[in-house]
Nucleic acid binder design. Structure first.
Lengths: 238, 238
DNA sequence: CCAGTTCGCAAACATCGTTCGCGAACATCG
DNA sequence: CGATGTTCGCGAACGATGTTTGCGAACTGG
């Protein structure tokens, strides 16, 4: 049988292995137990992709460029990853290793804020992360560790499982939203401002006109992150 | 001068026009005042793109496919739009016409909830919208109308302009997050569940194991949208 | 040593966004 | 009415993308 695509996985070395869904990369063994050994690893490829994304953005992460960084051919990457989206999932989950997860203190609200603040820092380090957290939530080994920790923090909380999962999703999503907004402040805001000035000059939309007139002398609103997130969490939890 | 790209715009018919930023599509006149008349309009192209996205998703919206729907060549679209992202901006803003904006009632919290609920419905109608609202917030003519209305609702509110703008961004973003989550419930959740079952079976992560065991008999948490959004808005505003 | 299997990867395919160049179409003006 | 100036429509091409195919090379268990 020529190649044929991972036939060894079906040979029943472990019964549980045969039952696995192949649609999720975390359940696919990284290396085959027989045959020519691989020269690289998922971690190595992921690290290269993350570094490239940090430097030039997500859209610069093409199979060819990642392969070039590693000094291989583009097609070789498909021995480690079924598709580009798999690589993106690996990238997103790998950032989960940057969390420091201290033991729960008893104050779940404070503990969740600690996590959220770390998430914010991590997303600032990897400016492509917010878009992935929002648009393609991946739950790999590291993400599972974070989820376990959140559930540990909420262990004594009376809310049901579904609500706790929702709280986790909102914590991640809202943090990503915040970071995305503060990143777009320098870029998108300028483009919007040009059009908003035009709208203000046109005469309709008096509220926008007034807002733009009073905008410069307005003190900056400070960092609303903690306050908004705390309120939102008490909204979904008790 | 052969074509050369919209030279008439520089001829100073209107002084204000010459000052315009060309980087924003809303400030670029749709049709040239001289020369051969265009056979189509931005609105027509936008409508075709929206219909295609509603049917087959955002990634199906390619210049070639949109052009094919209209019975033209792909290159022709660039007479109406400078880039594909411009077309996406047009699509996003066009959904702003689906709002019904009643006069402010005096209760700003209730009025904002009315807007948010409409946003939710609109995003459910156009399943590609949440990703755009979050990743590429476009503020066109219709978006400006909605913003004007929100500012009108908040006219008597003591918060500063920056905070009101932040409230608007959070209102849109959080709504998009919610819709994205409820859409992913059927798709992503299934993929996650397979891996989560594996994690639970592995033995570590006892909280996740317990959560999965108690998951089926747990009553669904009802619709948290109104509650979470209200709490968050009072978090950023007074 | 050989049979079995996987690995690395050049080449090819389909598709994408975008640009170029030019004939055709239209409004204006002489 | 015809010439002129300008834009429009668009076939063809360019470069880049994700992915597949096919095969020689590399390794291992028997």
């Amino acid at each position: 049988m020529p190649d044929g695509g991972s036939a060894w996985r079906r040979q029943g070395l472990e019964v549980a292995v045969a039952e696995q869904e192949e649609s999720v990369i975390w359940l696919r063994p990284e290396h085959a137990p027989v045959g020519r050994p691989a020269e690289r690893s998922r971690a190595e490829i992921t690290a290269a992709a993350v570094e490239l994304a940090d430097r030039e953005g997500l859209e610069a992460v093409s199979m060819r460029r990642v392969a070039a960084i590693l000094g291989t051919g583009a097609a070789s990457l498909y021995r480690y990853v079924a598709t580009r989206d798999d690589l993106l999932d690996l990238m997103a989950d790998s950032t989960g290793s940057e969390y420091d997860l201290p033991a729960p203190s008893g104050d779940w609200q404070a503990d969740l804020l600690v996590i959220a603040r770390q998430a914010r820092q991590i997303m600032r380090r990897h400016r492509w992360l917010p878009a992935m957290v929002i648009g393609r939530p991946a739950l790999g080994p590291h993400g599972v560790d974070v989820l376990e920790h959140v559930l540990d923090v909420l262990a004594d909380h009376p809310a049901g499982p579904a609500r706790k999962l929702e709280a986790f999703a909102i914590l991640s999503g809202l943090t990503a939203l915040f970071v995305q907004n503060e990143m777009a402040a320098a870029d998108t805001a300028t483009r919007h401002a040009a059009y908003l000035r035009h709208v203000a000059a046109a005469g309709d939309h008096p509220r926008i006109t007034a807002l733009l007139a009073a905008s410069p002398p307005d003190g900056n609103p400070g960092d609303q992150f903690d306050a908004v997130l705390a309120r939102t969490l008490t909204g979904v939890l008790g």
